[in-house]
Nucleic acid binder design. Structure first.
Length: 425
RNA sequence: GGUGGGGUUCCCGAGUGGCCAAAGGGAUCAGACUGUAAAUCUGACGCGUAAGCUUCGGUGGUUCGAAUCCACCUCCCACCA
């Protein structure tokens, strides 16, 4: 019960992972003992995306330091929708959908924290459990009474929605803060949970919970928010041209996930190492130093990509991503064996099977999704942007068939510098 | 409820009867240069090999011809109540 790493907050500080804390000095004292903390994840889709990675990893950091993490899945709050810093009212999803998502998130969240029999073993909780049978009158009298509307409308997170003409905020979303506060006080009561972490946008909701807990149970609980992950070029983190980067390998393959991190800008990569890996400070400083001295390609992106992919998809997932990446970007495609190619397919390289006897290059590009119309396909070919099995192909009418493929069965199509597709006959 | 202003191609935004698939910017994509970068330069950017076809909130109408004019509908915004 005493094996607590008291350097935890200093480590978080070094990583730039602390945005705000309630009563910092008290919290430092508080964390000298093993504590229980939580972070909420609302089901807004059937998978979390990398935006949730920072809080997930911080839960893990807390557990490694000897504390007990609770991952809260918002079966209840997900039905309401968090208005914090959202420009517009969100549409509600139906209950069955949300319940399906809740199950997936539970599973996903579980991969990041330990459930073994140790004293600080993690738990997954669902706020639906303690909210679904609270009746309205009880809620209004026992919980609502503790909240001042005057204070609530002062919160930065909803201010713009209230002040801005045109867009408003429904009572439903306005109430979200109360529900989340209720969660915190319930977790305090049921699990002795005394710390909530969350993104910086959660500050208002978290402090609501610390106050409610004090009023209901006279307990002191703490809040700690994490910084919003930003990119140096100002674009939104976690999105690429092709969409959101999900944690679920079915939605974003391990290969695509790995590639996402490999493509991190130099200006962001050292910051991201701190946010997303468990490497020690000395190691990270050394990496940065080495990259600075060596001209040419920095190695930080590769380290980041390997570390994060391993964290999310495990060693196997990482190896799969590496196999594909190495084959496509550094290997000679002609040297791949049939088994190698089959492995790439198994590893989740973008692929499709063709039903046709033969395809023109243009048709192949369109059916593989590498070009969205025939016209675009022709343009790519004309631009010298397409290669087949590692060789530039500039003839629009080139015919592809099983016979022209590698091992009588595969074509590796490449459009531009980094988009690949495996065509199977 | 009243008055006024709007809804244009992924986004912003010009366009007020033919010269409009529709200016300009952004985003995106490709090429060159590179490090599977950044910056820069070049090109593409509704669909179609092309002829041509389909777009400018919706539906009808006027006209040889409409994103542009008319009617109705719908959604949004501002001000007033």
């Amino acid at each position: 019960m005493s094996a607590v790493d008291t350097n935890l907050l200093a480590d978080l500080e070094m990583r730039g992972l602390i945005n705000q804390m309630t009563s910092p000095e008290d919290l430092v004292q508080h964390l000298r003992e093993p504590r229980t903390l939580y972070c909420g994840f609302d089901p807004t889709a059937d998978s979390l995306h990398i935006g949730s990675l920072v809080p997930l990893l911080v839960l893990k950091r807390f557990q490694q330091a000897g504390h007990k993490p609770l991952a809260l899945v918002g079966g209840a709050t997900g039905m309401i929708g968090d208005p914090s810093f959202k420009a517009q009212e969100r549409k509600l999803n139906d209950e069955a959908t949300i319940n399906g998502w809740v199950e997936k998130l539970k599973h996903q969240v579980s991969a990041f924290i330990e459930f073994s029999d140790q004293a600080n073993s993690a738990a997954v909780v669902n706020n639906y459990d303690w909210t679904h049978n609270v009746d309205v009158l009880t809620f209004l009298r026992d919980i609502g009474k503790h909240f001042s509307v005057n204070q609530m409308i002062q919160k930065e997170s909803v201010k713009q929605r209230i002040e801005r003409e045109g867009d408003g905020i429904s009572f439903t979303e306005f109430t979200y803060m109360i529900l989340q506060s209720y969660d915190f006080s319930e977790l305090y009561n049921q699990y002795a949970c005394t710390l909530q972490i969350g993104g910086s946008d959660q500050w208002g909701n978290i402090t609501g919970g610390t106050e409610l807990t004090r009023r209901r149970y006279q307990g002191q609980v703490f809040g700690l928010t994490l910084p919003l992950v930003t990119k140096a070029d100002g674009t939104k983190f976690g999105k690429t041209e092709s969409g959101t980067i999900w944690l679920d390998a079915k939605k974003t393959s391990q290969y695509a996930f790995y590639q996402f991190w490999i493509n991190t800008a130099d200006a962001d990569v050292y910051k991201f190492l701190r946010y997303f890996t468990f490497l020690g400070e000395a190691d990270m400083v050394a990496i940065e130093e080495r990259d600075k001295e060596a001209q040419g390609r920095p190695e930080a992106q590769g380290i980041l990509a390997r570390e994060v992919t391993r964290l999310v998809h495990g060693e196997e997932g990482l190896q799969a991503a590496l196999r594909i990446s190495e084959a496509l970007f550094s290997g000679n495609l002609q040297h791949l064996t049939a088994a190698d190619l089959e492995q790439l397919y198994q590893d989740g390289m973008p692929a499709s099977a063709t039903g046709a006897e033969q395809l023109t290059l243009v048709e192949a590009l369109v059916t593989s999704g590498l070009a969205k119309s025939n016209k675009m396909a022709r343009e790519f070919v004309g631009n010298n942007a397409v290669s087949v099995n590692g060789e530039k192909c500039t003839q629009v009418d080139t015919l592809l068939s099983a016979a022209t493929g590698l091992h009588g069965r595969y074509h590796i199509l490449k459009r531009g510098k980094k988009l690949f597709h495996l065509l199977r006959w």
